[in-house]
């Protein structure tokens, strides 16, 4: 019977789709696990003792990014490349976390903002949609905003650890970031919301810088030289 046939046919479509989603979910789970491991490595910079060996932590994180690249390589094989946005929701969250982690490593190494190209390279994916599994602009921006919030925390903890120069540099960095974002006309709701959070990060860092200023601790820093 023709209707029955057609529904069997459609059922085939749907099953195939679900199998793909199941496969993607599995790889994404592994990615999440690796992301959590990188986070654990990098989190220790907030501890007073962690400030001493940032370079070694960055190296360790860089190694874990190799594993990430393997997983993203595998992820690409799980679905037809032109259907990226069909399954986007599955990896969106973990990709934003990974962008943040890559941006954090790069910041800790060079105190500069990772570019979209660099991130893509670290994660083993493309920048342009045409070239294959790529990094969506919004996901890049979301990852960068997570960095801002992490850095506001770092500013606080670097004072505790006795590093009085870092907050000032973080303050400048976040201010630049804010200027950049302010030029964007964000329509997309979740991104806009996250961006609103940036203002609070900025406020917090400003408080730290202020606290240092009134105690003359910023001058001391400049005089003494740092890092």
């Amino acid at each position: 019977m023709s209707v029955t046939e057609m529904f069997s046919f459609i059922q085939g479509f749907l099953s195939a789709d679900q199998d793909i989603r199941e496969d993607i979910r599995k790889v994404v789970q592994v990615l999440e696990q690796t992301a959590r491991e990188i986070l654990t490595v990098l989190q220790s910079v907030h501890q007073p003792c962690g400030f001493k060996d940032i370079p070694s932590k960055c190296l360790k994180a860089r190694e874990l990014f190799c594993t990430v690249r393997n997983h993203t390589g595998e992820l690409k094989t799980k679905f037809p490349v032109e259907q990226y946005y069909r399954y986007h929701e599955h990896w969106r969250f973990v990709l934003q976390r990974l962008v943040f982690l890559a941006a954090f490593v790069v910041y800790l190494e060079s105190e500069s903002l990772v570019t979209r190209e660099e991130v893509a390279k670290i994660l083993g994916i493309e920048v342009d949609r045409e070239k294959g599994f790529h990094l969506d602009v919004e996901d890049y921006l979301a990852g960068v905003l997570i960095l801002a919030s992490e850095l506001s925390r770092l500013a606080v903890n670097s004072v505790t650890a006795g590093d009085y120069g870092r907050p000032l540099r973080i303050s400048n960095f976040i201010n630049e970031l804010d200027s950049g974002f302010r030029l964007l006309n964000l329509k997309n709701d979740p991104l806009r919301k996250r961006y609103d959070g940036l203002k609070y990060d900025l406020k917090k860092i400003e408080e730290v810088v202020y606290d240092l200023s009134i105690r003359g601790l910023t001058k001391e820093q400049e005089a003494g030289g740092d890092k």
Partner: peptide, 9 residues
């Protein structure tokens, strides 16, 4: 929003 960013600035 304007107020919060003023403080930040």
């Amino acid at each position: 929003r304007m107020c919060i960013s003023s403080v930040g600035n």
